[in-house]
Nucleic acid binder design. Sequence first.
DNA 1: CTGGATCCAAGTTGATACTG
DNA 2: CAGTATCAACTTGGATCCAG
Lengths: 116, 116
Amino acid sequence: MFDPVCPSDLTPIRFGDKWAGMIIRCLEDGPRRFSELRIPLRGVTAKVLTGSLRALERDGLIRRTVCAGPERRVDYELTPLGRSLLEPMAAACEWAEQHWDELLDAREASSLDRTG
Amino acid sequence: MFDPVCPSDLTPIRFGDKWAGMIIRCLEDGPRRFSELRIPLRGVTAKVLTGSLRALERDGLIRRTVCAGPERRVDYELTPLGRSLLEPMAAACEWAEQHWDELLDAREASSLDRTG
DNA sequence: CTGGATCCAAGTTGATACTG
DNA sequence: CAGTATCAACTTGGATCCAG
């Protein structure tokens, strides 16, 4: 799923911490539960995801809602500010896609310098 | 000088490592020497600046040129790829300027939550 | 289910001293 | 001038276990 965003951390552009960019994209289409977020973000532990979510909340990019009811359930959704971030993110993705090959070539060339 | 870029590391958007974004902006108007770069980047040590420059060079964003002559002199300049990064960087800066107040407000609000 | 607590490995940044 | 070497501090991400 996150191939188009940052295939191998190759692009020099990053949004927040390691998971912030992916979290924002996960929330793009509407609110998601804590456990829903853990599915696409394969490998993220609860603690780290909590940390990222708290940071995003502190910056006013997402809103955390504890839903009433018998079952414990917490929803996260983008605030208008968070949603506005999608624009520069799209610009960053476009740049990454356009210059993907050049980035790869540069890495290859510099690794060849070291070996030969 | 770097107030417009990232006044207090408040924006969630980052380019490369801590100094990469500033280095790129320093090279925007043409080649600069190692020691010239150290002026605006107050506080950066030679080792750290070297590390950032090497990383940018490896990614093909800047080119390093050792100038011939009696005095030791090394120039750094943006490659076309590095220059192309100025576009998404401008988009990021624009976003940061437009939403500066909201970011500040969010931080204030969350710090108030903690104190009272 | 949604985290908090604790511990830990790894990476990042920097201070300081030194070199061709 | 343009770095390199070494060491120390801090930050990050994660594993594991525990709790309301």
